[in-house]
Design a protein around this nucleic acid. Structure first.
Lengths: 277, 277
DNA sequence: TATAATACTGACTAACCGGTCATCTGTCAA
DNA sequence: TTGACAGATGACCGGTTAGTCAGTATTATA
Protein backbone atom coordinates (compact mmCIF):
# COMPACT_ATOMS: atom_id res chain seq x y z
CA UNK A 1 0.00 0.00 0.00
CA UNK A 2 1.38 3.38 -1.05
CA UNK A 3 -0.60 5.12 1.66
CA UNK A 4 1.42 3.39 4.36
CA UNK A 5 4.71 4.41 2.77
CA UNK A 6 3.67 8.01 2.30
CA UNK A 7 2.46 8.31 5.88
CA UNK A 8 5.66 6.87 7.31
CA UNK A 9 7.92 9.11 5.30
CA UNK A 10 5.74 12.13 5.88
CA UNK A 11 5.85 11.63 9.64
CA UNK A 12 9.64 11.67 9.54
CA UNK A 13 9.65 14.95 7.64
CA UNK A 14 6.88 16.58 9.67
CA UNK A 15 8.70 15.70 12.89
CA UNK A 16 11.88 17.27 11.59
CA UNK A 17 10.54 20.37 9.84
CA UNK A 18 6.93 20.80 10.85
CA UNK A 19 3.83 20.36 8.74
CA UNK A 20 3.71 23.66 6.91
CA UNK A 21 7.42 23.74 6.22
CA UNK A 22 7.24 20.37 4.50
CA UNK A 23 6.09 20.43 0.88
CA UNK A 24 4.31 17.64 -0.95
CA UNK A 25 7.25 17.63 -3.33
CA UNK A 26 9.63 16.84 -0.50
CA UNK A 27 7.43 14.01 0.71
CA UNK A 28 7.17 12.39 -2.69
CA UNK A 29 10.90 12.71 -3.28
CA UNK A 30 11.54 11.11 0.11
CA UNK A 31 9.25 8.25 -0.97
CA UNK A 32 10.76 7.94 -4.41
CA UNK A 33 7.43 8.50 -6.13
CA UNK A 34 5.99 11.25 -8.30
CA UNK A 35 3.88 14.12 -7.12
CA UNK A 36 0.85 12.82 -8.95
CA UNK A 37 1.08 9.49 -7.15
CA UNK A 38 0.65 11.32 -3.85
CA UNK A 39 -2.74 12.58 -4.94
CA UNK A 40 -3.83 9.07 -5.85
CA UNK A 41 -3.58 8.16 -2.16
CA UNK A 42 -4.64 11.42 -0.53
CA UNK A 43 -7.05 14.09 -1.67
CA UNK A 44 -4.89 16.84 -0.22
CA UNK A 45 -2.00 17.56 2.10
CA UNK A 46 -4.50 18.36 4.85
CA UNK A 47 -6.13 14.96 4.49
CA UNK A 48 -2.72 13.38 5.02
CA UNK A 49 -2.10 15.03 8.36
CA UNK A 50 -5.63 14.26 9.51
CA UNK A 51 -5.17 10.59 8.67
CA UNK A 52 -1.85 10.53 10.49
CA UNK A 53 -3.37 12.09 13.58
CA UNK A 54 -6.29 9.69 13.54
CA UNK A 55 -4.13 6.65 12.99
CA UNK A 56 -1.99 7.27 16.04
CA UNK A 57 -4.47 8.91 18.35
CA UNK A 58 -6.97 6.11 17.90
CA UNK A 59 -4.33 3.58 18.92
CA UNK A 60 -3.11 5.72 21.78
CA UNK A 61 -6.48 6.73 23.20
CA UNK A 62 -7.92 3.24 22.98
CA UNK A 63 -4.88 1.70 24.61
CA UNK A 64 -4.85 4.03 27.57
CA UNK A 65 -8.59 3.95 28.02
CA UNK A 66 -8.66 0.16 27.96
CA UNK A 67 -5.93 0.07 30.55
CA UNK A 68 -7.80 2.39 32.87
CA UNK A 69 -11.11 0.57 32.41
CA UNK A 70 -9.75 -2.93 32.89
CA UNK A 71 -7.10 -2.55 35.57
CA UNK A 72 -8.76 -3.15 38.91
CA UNK A 73 -5.64 -3.34 41.03
CA UNK A 74 -5.63 0.18 42.29
CA UNK A 75 -2.06 0.28 43.39
CA UNK A 76 -0.70 -0.66 40.02
CA UNK A 77 -3.05 1.28 37.80
CA UNK A 78 -1.34 4.64 38.05
CA UNK A 79 2.05 3.10 37.49
CA UNK A 80 0.84 1.22 34.43
CA UNK A 81 -0.83 4.38 33.16
CA UNK A 82 2.36 6.42 33.25
CA UNK A 83 4.40 3.55 31.91
CA UNK A 84 2.06 3.04 28.96
CA UNK A 85 2.00 6.74 28.16
CA UNK A 86 5.73 7.19 28.10
CA UNK A 87 6.36 3.87 26.43
CA UNK A 88 4.05 4.89 23.65
CA UNK A 89 5.69 8.28 23.33
CA UNK A 90 9.07 6.65 23.13
CA UNK A 91 8.00 4.11 20.53
CA UNK A 92 6.37 6.70 18.30
CA UNK A 93 8.65 9.59 19.05
CA UNK A 94 8.34 11.13 15.59
CA UNK A 95 4.60 11.33 15.93
CA UNK A 96 5.01 12.69 19.44
CA UNK A 97 7.16 15.47 18.07
CA UNK A 98 4.50 16.40 15.55
CA UNK A 99 1.91 16.39 18.30
CA UNK A 100 3.89 18.81 20.42
CA UNK A 101 5.06 20.99 17.56
CA UNK A 102 1.68 21.48 15.98
CA UNK A 103 -0.15 21.47 19.33
CA UNK A 104 -2.17 24.56 18.86
CA UNK A 105 -1.50 25.76 15.37
CA UNK A 106 -4.36 27.28 13.56
CA UNK A 107 -3.47 26.33 10.01
CA UNK A 108 -6.42 24.02 9.62
CA UNK A 109 -9.78 24.03 11.33
CA UNK A 110 -10.35 20.29 11.04
CA UNK A 111 -6.98 19.68 12.60
CA UNK A 112 -7.80 21.80 15.65
CA UNK A 113 -11.17 20.15 16.10
CA UNK A 114 -9.51 16.74 15.90
CA UNK A 115 -6.87 17.63 18.45
CA UNK A 116 -9.42 19.11 20.83
CA UNK A 117 -11.48 15.99 20.51
CA UNK A 118 -8.67 13.61 21.42
CA UNK A 119 -7.54 15.94 24.17
CA UNK A 120 -11.00 15.82 25.73
CA UNK A 121 -11.07 12.04 25.45
CA UNK A 122 -7.79 11.89 27.32
CA UNK A 123 -9.14 14.27 29.96
CA UNK A 124 -12.14 12.03 30.43
CA UNK A 125 -9.99 8.93 30.78
CA UNK A 126 -7.66 10.54 33.28
CA UNK A 127 -10.58 11.90 35.26
CA UNK A 128 -12.24 8.51 35.55
CA UNK A 129 -8.92 7.05 36.63
CA UNK A 130 -8.52 9.68 39.30
CA UNK A 131 -12.03 9.04 40.59
CA UNK A 132 -11.46 5.31 40.62
CA UNK A 133 -8.10 5.56 42.35
CA UNK A 134 -8.84 7.98 45.12
CA UNK A 135 -12.58 7.64 45.55
CA UNK A 136 -15.07 9.90 43.90
CA UNK A 137 -15.90 11.69 47.14
CA UNK A 138 -12.46 12.13 48.62
CA UNK A 139 -10.96 13.99 45.70
CA UNK A 140 -14.17 15.65 44.59
CA UNK A 141 -12.80 19.12 45.18
CA UNK A 142 -9.40 18.74 43.63
CA UNK A 143 -9.92 16.13 40.97
CA UNK A 144 -9.86 18.57 38.07
CA UNK A 145 -6.65 20.08 39.33
CA UNK A 146 -5.28 16.58 39.57
CA UNK A 147 -6.08 15.93 35.93
CA UNK A 148 -4.23 19.09 35.03
CA UNK A 149 -1.21 18.17 37.09
CA UNK A 150 -1.04 14.69 35.59
CA UNK A 151 -1.16 16.20 32.13
CA UNK A 152 1.51 18.68 33.15
CA UNK A 153 3.76 15.83 34.29
CA UNK A 154 3.12 14.02 31.04
CA UNK A 155 3.95 16.96 28.84
CA UNK A 156 7.06 18.09 30.72
CA UNK A 157 8.66 14.69 31.04
CA UNK A 158 7.73 13.72 27.48
CA UNK A 159 9.84 16.53 26.17
CA UNK A 160 12.86 14.91 27.76
CA UNK A 161 13.07 12.03 25.38
CA UNK A 162 11.37 13.71 22.48
CA UNK A 163 13.91 16.44 22.14
CA UNK A 164 16.97 14.93 23.70
CA UNK A 165 17.55 11.42 22.55
CA UNK A 166 18.32 10.10 25.98
CA UNK A 167 17.50 6.51 26.83
CA UNK A 168 15.26 6.74 29.85
CA UNK A 169 14.44 4.43 32.73
CA UNK A 170 10.69 4.26 32.27
CA UNK A 171 10.25 2.23 35.44
CA UNK A 172 11.91 4.87 37.59
CA UNK A 173 10.08 7.66 35.80
CA UNK A 174 6.70 6.02 36.35
CA UNK A 175 7.45 5.25 39.99
CA UNK A 176 8.55 8.81 40.58
CA UNK A 177 5.42 10.26 39.01
CA UNK A 178 3.16 7.84 40.87
CA UNK A 179 4.57 9.13 44.15
CA UNK A 180 4.12 12.74 43.08
CA UNK A 181 0.56 12.14 41.94
CA UNK A 182 -0.34 10.35 45.16
CA UNK A 183 1.13 13.18 47.22
CA UNK A 184 -0.97 15.73 45.44
CA UNK A 185 -4.13 13.62 45.47
CA UNK A 186 -4.01 12.82 49.17
CA UNK A 187 -2.84 16.13 50.57
CA UNK A 188 -4.01 18.97 48.35
CA UNK A 189 -6.65 21.17 49.93
CA UNK A 190 -6.81 24.25 47.73
CA UNK A 191 -8.50 23.50 44.41
CA UNK A 192 -8.23 25.99 41.61
CA UNK A 193 -10.19 24.41 38.81
CA UNK A 194 -13.83 24.13 39.76
CA UNK A 195 -16.59 22.20 38.03
CA UNK A 196 -17.89 25.49 36.70
CA UNK A 197 -14.57 26.50 35.23
CA UNK A 198 -14.26 23.14 33.52
CA UNK A 199 -17.59 23.60 31.84
CA UNK A 200 -16.55 26.94 30.40
CA UNK A 201 -13.89 25.44 28.21
CA UNK A 202 -15.31 21.97 27.89
CA UNK A 203 -17.57 23.50 25.24
CA UNK A 204 -19.90 21.33 23.25
CA UNK A 205 -17.77 18.83 21.40
CA UNK A 206 -17.56 15.71 23.45
CA UNK A 207 -21.07 14.38 23.34
CA UNK A 208 -20.90 10.68 22.62
CA UNK A 209 -21.11 9.56 19.06
CA UNK A 210 -24.66 8.66 18.23
CA UNK A 211 -25.74 5.09 17.73
CA UNK A 212 -26.01 5.71 14.00
CA UNK A 213 -22.47 6.99 13.69
CA UNK A 214 -21.10 3.93 15.44
CA UNK A 215 -23.28 1.70 13.30
CA UNK A 216 -21.82 3.29 10.21
CA UNK A 217 -18.30 2.47 11.36
CA UNK A 218 -19.29 -1.11 12.19
CA UNK A 219 -20.87 -1.73 8.78
CA UNK A 220 -17.83 -0.29 7.11
CA UNK A 221 -15.52 -2.57 9.09
CA UNK A 222 -17.65 -5.64 8.46
CA UNK A 223 -17.45 -5.12 4.73
CA UNK A 224 -13.70 -4.75 4.77
CA UNK A 225 -13.03 -7.80 6.93
CA UNK A 226 -12.48 -11.45 6.10
CA UNK A 227 -14.48 -14.11 7.90
CA UNK A 228 -13.12 -14.44 11.41
CA UNK A 229 -13.99 -14.43 15.07
CA UNK A 230 -13.58 -10.66 15.00
CA UNK A 231 -16.08 -10.25 12.20
CA UNK A 232 -18.53 -12.58 13.95
CA UNK A 233 -18.18 -10.53 17.12
CA UNK A 234 -18.81 -7.35 15.20
CA UNK A 235 -22.01 -8.74 13.71
CA UNK A 236 -23.25 -9.76 17.13
CA UNK A 237 -22.40 -6.36 18.59
CA UNK A 238 -24.24 -4.73 15.75
CA UNK A 239 -27.35 -6.71 16.67
CA UNK A 240 -26.88 -5.77 20.30
CA UNK A 241 -26.84 -2.15 19.24
CA UNK A 242 -30.24 -2.59 17.59
CA UNK A 243 -31.84 -4.34 20.53
CA UNK A 244 -30.38 -5.19 23.89
CA UNK A 245 -30.24 -8.98 24.21
CA UNK A 246 -26.92 -9.96 25.75
CA UNK A 247 -25.73 -9.37 29.28
CA UNK A 248 -22.73 -7.29 30.28
CA UNK A 249 -20.41 -10.27 30.43
CA UNK A 250 -21.05 -11.33 26.85
CA UNK A 251 -20.73 -7.80 25.54
CA UNK A 252 -17.49 -7.33 27.35
CA UNK A 253 -16.19 -10.56 25.91
CA UNK A 254 -17.16 -9.55 22.41
CA UNK A 255 -15.48 -6.19 22.83
CA UNK A 256 -12.35 -7.95 24.00
CA UNK A 257 -12.43 -10.06 20.83
CA UNK A 258 -12.30 -7.05 18.56
CA UNK A 259 -9.99 -5.01 20.74
CA UNK A 260 -6.84 -6.71 19.53
CA UNK A 261 -7.41 -6.11 15.84
CA UNK A 262 -6.06 -2.65 14.94
CA UNK A 263 -8.89 -2.03 12.54
CA UNK A 264 -11.60 -2.55 15.14
CA UNK A 265 -9.80 -1.28 18.23
CA UNK A 266 -11.51 2.05 17.85
CA UNK A 267 -14.97 0.50 17.57
CA UNK A 268 -14.27 -1.47 20.71
CA UNK A 269 -13.49 1.75 22.49
CA UNK A 270 -16.57 3.55 21.21
CA UNK A 271 -18.90 0.69 22.09
CA UNK A 272 -17.33 0.30 25.51
CA UNK A 273 -18.06 3.93 26.08
CA UNK A 274 -21.56 3.58 24.63
CA UNK A 275 -22.50 0.58 26.76
CA UNK A 276 -20.84 2.15 29.82
CA UNK A 277 -18.60 -0.80 30.48
CA UNK B 1 9.49 54.80 16.06
CA UNK B 2 8.04 52.59 13.34
CA UNK B 3 9.68 49.53 14.85
CA UNK B 4 7.45 49.74 17.90
CA UNK B 5 4.30 49.97 15.81
CA UNK B 6 5.26 47.08 13.55
CA UNK B 7 6.12 44.85 16.49
CA UNK B 8 2.84 45.57 18.25
CA UNK B 9 0.69 44.91 15.21
CA UNK B 10 2.73 41.87 14.22
CA UNK B 11 2.26 40.33 17.65
CA UNK B 12 -1.50 40.62 17.29
CA UNK B 13 -1.43 38.85 13.94
CA UNK B 14 1.08 36.19 14.97
CA UNK B 15 -1.01 35.36 18.01
CA UNK B 16 -4.09 34.96 15.87
CA UNK B 17 -2.68 33.18 12.85
CA UNK B 18 0.79 32.00 13.70
CA UNK B 19 4.10 33.24 12.37
CA UNK B 20 4.30 31.43 9.07
CA UNK B 21 0.68 32.00 8.19
CA UNK B 22 1.09 35.77 8.56
CA UNK B 23 2.60 37.55 5.56
CA UNK B 24 4.63 40.72 5.66
CA UNK B 25 1.95 42.24 3.44
CA UNK B 26 -0.68 41.61 6.11
CA UNK B 27 1.49 43.16 8.78
CA UNK B 28 2.15 46.32 6.81
CA UNK B 29 -1.52 46.67 5.89
CA UNK B 30 -2.42 46.29 9.55
CA UNK B 31 0.04 49.07 10.33
CA UNK B 32 -1.12 51.31 7.48
CA UNK B 33 2.36 51.45 5.96
CA UNK B 34 3.92 50.14 2.77
CA UNK B 35 5.83 46.94 2.38
CA UNK B 36 9.05 48.78 1.73
CA UNK B 37 8.75 50.62 5.02
CA UNK B 38 8.80 47.31 6.82
CA UNK B 39 12.23 46.53 5.42
CA UNK B 40 13.55 49.87 6.62
CA UNK B 41 12.95 48.72 10.20
CA UNK B 42 13.75 45.01 9.88
CA UNK B 43 16.17 43.19 7.65
CA UNK B 44 13.79 40.27 7.27
CA UNK B 45 10.68 38.66 8.64
CA UNK B 46 12.83 36.35 10.73
CA UNK B 47 14.59 39.29 12.33
CA UNK B 48 11.20 40.62 13.38
CA UNK B 49 10.21 37.50 15.30
CA UNK B 50 13.64 37.33 16.93
CA UNK B 51 13.33 40.93 18.11
CA UNK B 52 9.85 40.26 19.46
CA UNK B 53 11.04 37.22 21.37
CA UNK B 54 13.98 39.16 22.78
CA UNK B 55 11.91 42.15 23.75
CA UNK B 56 9.48 40.17 25.85
CA UNK B 57 11.73 37.46 27.17
CA UNK B 58 14.26 40.00 28.40
CA UNK B 59 11.52 41.76 30.37
CA UNK B 60 10.07 38.52 31.63
CA UNK B 61 13.31 36.81 32.57
CA UNK B 62 14.73 39.86 34.29
CA UNK B 63 11.55 40.46 36.24
CA UNK B 64 11.27 36.93 37.57
CA UNK B 65 14.97 36.66 38.28
CA UNK B 66 14.99 39.94 40.19
CA UNK B 67 12.03 38.78 42.22
CA UNK B 68 13.73 35.55 43.16
CA UNK B 69 17.01 37.23 43.98
CA UNK B 70 15.60 40.02 46.07
CA UNK B 71 12.72 38.43 47.95
CA UNK B 72 14.03 37.18 51.25
CA UNK B 73 10.74 36.33 52.89
CA UNK B 74 10.72 32.67 52.16
CA UNK B 75 7.05 32.10 52.77
CA UNK B 76 5.94 34.66 50.26
CA UNK B 77 8.50 34.09 47.57
CA UNK B 78 6.85 31.13 45.91
CA UNK B 79 3.49 32.85 45.93
CA UNK B 80 4.93 35.98 44.41
CA UNK B 81 6.75 33.91 41.85
CA UNK B 82 3.61 32.21 40.58
CA UNK B 83 1.64 35.42 40.76
CA UNK B 84 4.22 37.31 38.73
CA UNK B 85 4.42 34.56 36.14
CA UNK B 86 0.71 34.34 35.54
CA UNK B 87 0.19 38.05 35.80
CA UNK B 88 2.76 38.57 33.11
CA UNK B 89 1.18 35.89 30.92
CA UNK B 90 -2.19 37.52 31.34
CA UNK B 91 -0.90 40.99 30.59
CA UNK B 92 0.96 39.91 27.48
CA UNK B 93 -1.39 37.16 26.42
CA UNK B 94 -0.79 37.71 22.71
CA UNK B 95 2.89 37.14 23.17
CA UNK B 96 2.16 34.14 25.37
CA UNK B 97 0.11 32.63 22.59
CA UNK B 98 2.96 33.04 20.15
CA UNK B 99 5.31 31.45 22.64
CA UNK B 100 3.15 28.38 23.00
CA UNK B 101 2.15 28.14 19.36
CA UNK B 102 5.63 28.35 17.99
CA UNK B 103 7.16 26.52 20.96
CA UNK B 104 9.42 24.18 19.15
CA UNK B 105 9.03 24.95 15.51
CA UNK B 106 12.08 24.47 13.47
CA UNK B 107 11.45 27.07 10.81
CA UNK B 108 14.41 29.07 11.93
CA UNK B 109 17.57 27.95 13.67
CA UNK B 110 18.18 31.27 15.43
CA UNK B 111 14.70 31.11 16.84
CA UNK B 112 15.28 27.71 18.42
CA UNK B 113 18.60 28.74 19.88
CA UNK B 114 16.98 31.84 21.37
CA UNK B 115 14.14 29.87 22.91
CA UNK B 116 16.51 27.30 24.38
CA UNK B 117 18.59 30.06 25.85
CA UNK B 118 15.71 31.73 27.65
CA UNK B 119 14.38 28.37 28.74
CA UNK B 120 17.70 27.57 30.38
CA UNK B 121 17.77 30.95 32.08
CA UNK B 122 14.34 30.26 33.52
CA UNK B 123 15.50 26.81 34.67
CA UNK B 124 18.40 28.41 36.44
CA UNK B 125 16.20 30.96 38.16
CA UNK B 126 13.68 28.36 39.29
CA UNK B 127 16.45 26.10 40.53
CA UNK B 128 17.99 28.81 42.63
CA UNK B 129 14.56 29.61 44.05
CA UNK B 130 14.00 25.98 44.96
CA UNK B 131 17.37 25.76 46.66
CA UNK B 132 16.74 28.95 48.55
CA UNK B 133 13.24 27.94 49.63
CA UNK B 134 13.78 24.42 50.79
CA UNK B 135 17.44 24.41 51.66
CA UNK B 136 20.13 23.28 49.30
CA UNK B 137 20.70 20.05 51.20
CA UNK B 138 17.18 19.00 51.94
CA UNK B 139 15.97 18.94 48.36
CA UNK B 140 19.29 18.01 46.84
CA UNK B 141 17.95 14.78 45.43
CA UNK B 142 14.71 15.99 44.01
CA UNK B 143 15.39 19.59 43.13
CA UNK B 144 15.62 19.00 39.40
CA UNK B 145 12.35 17.13 39.42
CA UNK B 146 10.88 20.02 41.32
CA UNK B 147 11.98 22.45 38.63
CA UNK B 148 10.27 20.27 36.06
CA UNK B 149 7.08 20.07 38.04
CA UNK B 150 6.94 23.82 38.54
CA UNK B 151 7.41 24.32 34.82
CA UNK B 152 4.70 21.76 34.19
CA UNK B 153 2.30 23.67 36.44
CA UNK B 154 3.19 26.88 34.66
CA UNK B 155 2.60 25.54 31.20
CA UNK B 156 -0.62 23.68 31.94
CA UNK B 157 -2.32 26.46 33.85
CA UNK B 158 -1.13 29.12 31.42
CA UNK B 159 -3.07 27.47 28.65
CA UNK B 160 -6.23 28.09 30.60
CA UNK B 161 -6.31 31.82 30.11
CA UNK B 162 -4.36 31.88 26.90
CA UNK B 163 -6.83 29.83 24.95
CA UNK B 164 -10.05 30.36 26.82
CA UNK B 165 -10.60 33.97 27.64
CA UNK B 166 -11.69 33.30 31.19
CA UNK B 167 -10.98 35.90 33.82
CA UNK B 168 -8.98 34.06 36.44
CA UNK B 169 -8.44 34.48 40.15
CA UNK B 170 -4.67 34.78 40.17
CA UNK B 171 -4.56 34.83 43.95
CA UNK B 172 -6.33 31.51 44.25
CA UNK B 173 -4.28 30.02 41.44
CA UNK B 174 -1.01 31.05 43.05
CA UNK B 175 -2.10 29.82 46.47
CA UNK B 176 -3.15 26.51 45.02
CA UNK B 177 0.13 26.01 43.21
CA UNK B 178 2.16 27.04 46.25
CA UNK B 179 0.49 24.27 48.22
CA UNK B 180 1.14 21.73 45.49
CA UNK B 181 4.76 22.75 45.15
CA UNK B 182 5.33 22.58 48.88
CA UNK B 183 3.76 19.14 49.04
CA UNK B 184 6.07 17.83 46.37
CA UNK B 185 9.16 19.54 47.78
CA UNK B 186 8.68 18.29 51.31
CA UNK B 187 7.49 14.76 50.69
CA UNK B 188 8.92 13.47 47.43
CA UNK B 189 11.45 10.70 47.87
CA UNK B 190 11.88 9.21 44.40
CA UNK B 191 13.84 11.53 42.11
CA UNK B 192 13.88 10.87 38.41
CA UNK B 193 16.04 13.63 37.03
CA UNK B 194 19.56 13.29 38.30
CA UNK B 195 22.39 15.77 38.05
CA UNK B 196 23.89 13.61 35.33
CA UNK B 197 20.73 13.59 33.28
CA UNK B 198 20.49 17.35 33.52
CA UNK B 199 23.97 17.74 32.14
CA UNK B 200 23.11 15.65 29.10
CA UNK B 201 20.60 18.12 27.79
CA UNK B 202 21.98 21.21 29.42
CA UNK B 203 24.46 21.16 26.52
CA UNK B 204 26.95 23.95 26.13
CA UNK B 205 24.90 27.09 25.60
CA UNK B 206 24.42 28.60 28.96
CA UNK B 207 27.90 29.63 29.94
CA UNK B 208 27.77 33.21 31.10
CA UNK B 209 28.25 35.92 28.57
CA UNK B 210 31.87 36.97 28.54
CA UNK B 211 32.98 40.27 29.96
CA UNK B 212 33.55 41.58 26.43
CA UNK B 213 30.05 40.75 25.31
CA UNK B 214 28.54 42.55 28.26
CA UNK B 215 30.89 45.47 27.66
CA UNK B 216 29.64 45.66 24.10
CA UNK B 217 26.06 45.93 25.29
CA UNK B 218 26.97 48.58 27.84
CA UNK B 219 28.79 50.76 25.31
CA UNK B 220 25.88 50.45 22.95
CA UNK B 221 23.44 51.51 25.66
CA UNK B 222 25.63 54.43 26.78
CA UNK B 223 25.71 55.82 23.27
CA UNK B 224 21.96 55.63 22.89
CA UNK B 225 21.13 57.23 26.24
CA UNK B 226 20.65 60.82 27.28
CA UNK B 227 22.53 62.18 30.29
CA UNK B 228 20.90 60.78 33.42
CA UNK B 229 21.51 58.90 36.63
CA UNK B 230 21.10 55.70 34.66
CA UNK B 231 23.79 56.63 32.20
CA UNK B 232 26.11 57.69 35.02
CA UNK B 233 25.53 54.37 36.73
CA UNK B 234 26.30 52.53 33.53
CA UNK B 235 29.60 54.35 33.11
CA UNK B 236 30.57 53.50 36.68
CA UNK B 237 29.63 49.85 36.18
CA UNK B 238 31.69 49.78 33.04
CA UNK B 239 34.71 50.96 35.00
CA UNK B 240 33.99 48.37 37.65
CA UNK B 241 34.05 45.75 34.93
CA UNK B 242 37.54 46.83 33.96
CA UNK B 243 38.93 46.86 37.47
CA UNK B 244 37.23 45.98 40.70
CA UNK B 245 37.04 49.10 42.84
CA UNK B 246 33.61 49.30 44.45
CA UNK B 247 32.15 47.08 47.14
CA UNK B 248 29.10 44.88 46.79
CA UNK B 249 26.78 47.49 48.24
CA UNK B 250 27.66 50.13 45.70
CA UNK B 251 27.44 47.72 42.80
CA UNK B 252 24.06 46.53 43.95
CA UNK B 253 22.87 50.09 44.20
CA UNK B 254 24.10 50.91 40.73
CA UNK B 255 22.39 47.84 39.33
CA UNK B 256 19.19 48.89 41.03
CA UNK B 257 19.49 52.30 39.35
CA UNK B 258 19.52 50.82 35.88
CA UNK B 259 17.06 48.06 36.60
CA UNK B 260 14.01 50.25 36.22
CA UNK B 261 14.86 51.54 32.77
CA UNK B 262 13.56 49.07 30.16
CA UNK B 263 16.58 49.62 27.97
CA UNK B 264 19.09 48.66 30.64
CA UNK B 265 17.07 46.09 32.56
CA UNK B 266 18.79 43.34 30.69
CA UNK B 267 22.25 44.69 31.43
CA UNK B 268 21.32 44.86 35.08
CA UNK B 269 20.39 41.21 34.96
CA UNK B 270 23.55 40.17 33.16
CA UNK B 271 25.83 42.12 35.49
CA UNK B 272 24.02 40.82 38.53
CA UNK B 273 24.70 37.36 37.26
CA UNK B 274 28.31 38.26 36.42
CA UNK B 275 29.09 39.77 39.82
CA UNK B 276 27.21 36.97 41.57
CA UNK B 277 24.89 39.27 43.47
C1' DT C 1 13.02 79.43 -1.64
C1' DA C 2 16.42 76.03 -3.19
C1' DT C 3 18.89 72.10 -2.09
C1' DA C 4 20.06 68.04 0.31
C1' DA C 5 18.82 64.29 3.07
C1' DT C 6 15.71 61.23 4.67
C1' DA C 7 11.43 58.52 4.84
C1' DC C 8 8.35 56.15 2.32
C1' DT C 9 5.93 53.77 -1.66
C1' DG C 10 4.19 49.87 -4.36
C1' DA C 11 5.04 47.59 -8.73
C1' DC C 12 8.07 44.07 -9.61
C1' DT C 13 10.94 39.62 -9.35
C1' DA C 14 12.16 35.01 -8.55
C1' DA C 15 10.98 31.21 -6.05
C1' DC C 16 7.95 28.08 -4.25
C1' DC C 17 3.46 26.28 -3.05
C1' DG C 18 -0.69 22.83 -3.56
C1' DG C 19 -3.06 20.75 -6.92
C1' DT C 20 -4.30 19.18 -11.99
C1' DC C 21 -4.19 16.50 -16.08
C1' DA C 22 -2.63 15.02 -20.69
C1' DT C 23 0.53 11.61 -21.37
C1' DC C 24 3.13 7.57 -20.75
C1' DT C 25 4.24 2.67 -19.05
C1' DG C 26 3.87 -2.00 -17.74
C1' DT C 27 0.82 -5.86 -17.42
C1' DC C 28 -2.18 -9.20 -18.83
C1' DA C 29 -6.19 -11.20 -21.35
C1' DA C 30 -7.62 -12.13 -25.92
C1' DT D 1 0.73 -9.21 -31.39
C1' DT D 2 -2.72 -6.46 -30.12
C1' DG D 3 -5.59 -3.61 -27.29
C1' DA D 4 -7.29 -2.07 -23.01
C1' DC D 5 -6.66 -0.27 -18.78
C1' DA D 6 -5.02 0.90 -14.00
C1' DG D 7 -1.18 3.12 -12.12
C1' DA D 8 2.27 6.39 -12.37
C1' DT D 9 4.45 10.62 -14.22
C1' DG D 10 6.05 15.48 -14.23
C1' DA D 11 5.28 19.73 -16.82
C1' DC D 12 2.23 23.03 -15.90
C1' DC D 13 -1.25 26.40 -13.60
C1' DG D 14 -2.89 29.98 -10.68
C1' DG D 15 -1.78 31.86 -6.52
C1' DT D 16 1.13 33.52 -2.73
C1' DT D 17 5.42 34.58 -0.70
C1' DA D 18 9.70 37.32 0.99
C1' DG D 19 12.34 40.65 -0.52
C1' DT D 20 14.04 44.66 -3.94
C1' DC D 21 14.51 49.09 -5.91
C1' DA D 22 13.63 53.03 -8.90
C1' DG D 23 11.12 56.62 -8.00
C1' DT D 24 8.18 59.94 -5.01
C1' DA D 25 6.96 62.58 -0.92
C1' DT D 26 8.44 64.83 3.25
C1' DT D 27 11.34 67.12 6.14
C1' DA D 28 15.56 69.52 7.51
C1' DT D 29 19.06 72.71 6.31
C1' DA D 30 21.17 76.73 4.28
Amino acid sequence: MKKQLIMEKAIELFAKQGFEATSVQQITEHCGISKGAFYLSFKSKDELIIEIIDHFMIQFTSEIDYLVRSEREEENLLYKFYYAIFNSFQKHSDFGKILIKEQSRSFNQDFIVKMRYYDRLMDKTILSMVEHLYGDDKVKEIKYDLVFCIKGFMSMYSQLFLFYNVPLDLDLLSTSLVEKTNLLARNSTVPFISKGLIEVFEEPGLEKLTKDQILLLINQAIEEMDESVEKESLVLLKEQLHEQTFGRAIIKGLLENIRIHPQTKWISYLLGSFFNL
